[in-house]
């Protein structure tokens, strides 16, 4: 984004293009009313909680178990995507084969498919008598209604992020870099490990973080497959919903603030990563 910014002739405030005041006014007003005011309500509500109440709400055993599951399963999902995502991106960027266009389009399905649909579909496929679940059960592997199912759903929702971060970098990678490595004596495997992967690394890390962040907040696709057993398969967003349904607004708010803090930190990290990745892509 920074590279793009630099190439734009900057029109200064009061520059030639009209409409600055109107555009700024509308943007700030809309953003303020729809985004900042409600988010402010969360912070305001949290500030009315007593410290003891807040600590009790966010460190209860159920909350701790939920953090563990949410962070753990999100991490697993992001790691799985960080392993398979580059393979998918590589195949889409480098090879031609029948059905490639369909495969390419399907990568974005988790973006486009409503999460409740993804949730019931994954549950039905991986439950004990589902298409794939019945075979896994024979091996003693339980996916649906177990932490593995949560990780599976979170892998699904995070899938497009790694692929779509890595794929453009791979497509734009100067083929001469790989040729240079080959002429210098490096075999294919070594070229990939020493030249291609380091070039992909910033984008891969960005995709990993995006995938992790998305997984952390995910709700719809998880609630069906997880079974929602407190202390075992209850994710943090579900715990917030549970608290709300019990009219425990304070508890919901407290945990919500923790989640929001985590999201903010991830957002900052992702912004920094993206800046880094872009810097790496300039020659």
């Amino acid at each position: 984004m920074q590279a793009a910014l630099r190439s734009v002739p900057l029109v200064r405030r009061g520059g030639v293009l009209p409409g600055y005041g109107l555009a700024l006014g509308f943007t700030v007003l809309y953003l303020g009313l729809l985004v900042l005011l409600p988010l402010g309500a969360l912070v305001l509500k949290a500030s009315t909680l007593s410290w003891e109440g807040f600590v009790a709400a966010v460190t209860g055993p159920r909350a701790l178990a939920a953090y563990r599951l949410s962070f753990g399963a999100s991490l697993v999902g992001a790691v799985v995507n960080a392993v398979f995502g580059p393979v998918v991106a590589w195949v889409l960027a480098r090879y031609d084969f029948p059905g490639k266009a369909v495969l390419d389009a399907l990568v974005d399905l988790p973006f486009a498919l409503p999460t409740s649909v993804a949730g019931i579909a994954l549950t039905a496929v991986y439950s004990q008598n589902g298409w794939l679940g019945q075979h896994l059960t024979k091996w003693g592997i339980q996916v649906a209604f177990a932490p593995a199912g949560v990780a599976m759903a979170l892998t699904f929702v995070g899938l497009p992020f790694v692929v779509r971060s890595v794929q453009p970098v791979l497509e734009d990678l100067d083929p001469r870099l790989e040729e240079a490595a080959a002429v210098l004596g490096a075999g294919r495997l070594r070229t990939v490990a020493w030249v291609v992967l380091p070039a992909l690394f910033p984008a891969l890390l960005t995709g990993f973080a995006l995938s992790f962040a998305r997984a952390l907040g995910e709700y719809g696709s998880v609630v069906f497959i997880s079974g929602n057993m407190p202390l075992r398969t209850e994710i943090v967003p579900l715990l917030i919903v549970t608290r709300l349904e019990q009219y425990d607004y304070a508890g919901a708010t407290a945990i919500g603030v923790v989640m929001l803090g985590a999201s903010f930190m991830l957002l900052l990290a992702i912004n920094a990563l993206q800046a880094w990745a872009l810097r790496g892509r300039k020659r």
Partner: peptide, 21 residues
């Protein structure tokens, strides 16, 4: 013979330096 074993040095147009090294 594949390029890896030709023992030639190649200077590419645009250099193709490894930016991460």
């Amino acid at each position: 013979v594949p390029p890896q074993r030709r023992e030639v040095g190649f200077v590419f147009q645009g250099y193709a330096l490894f930016e991460h090294l």
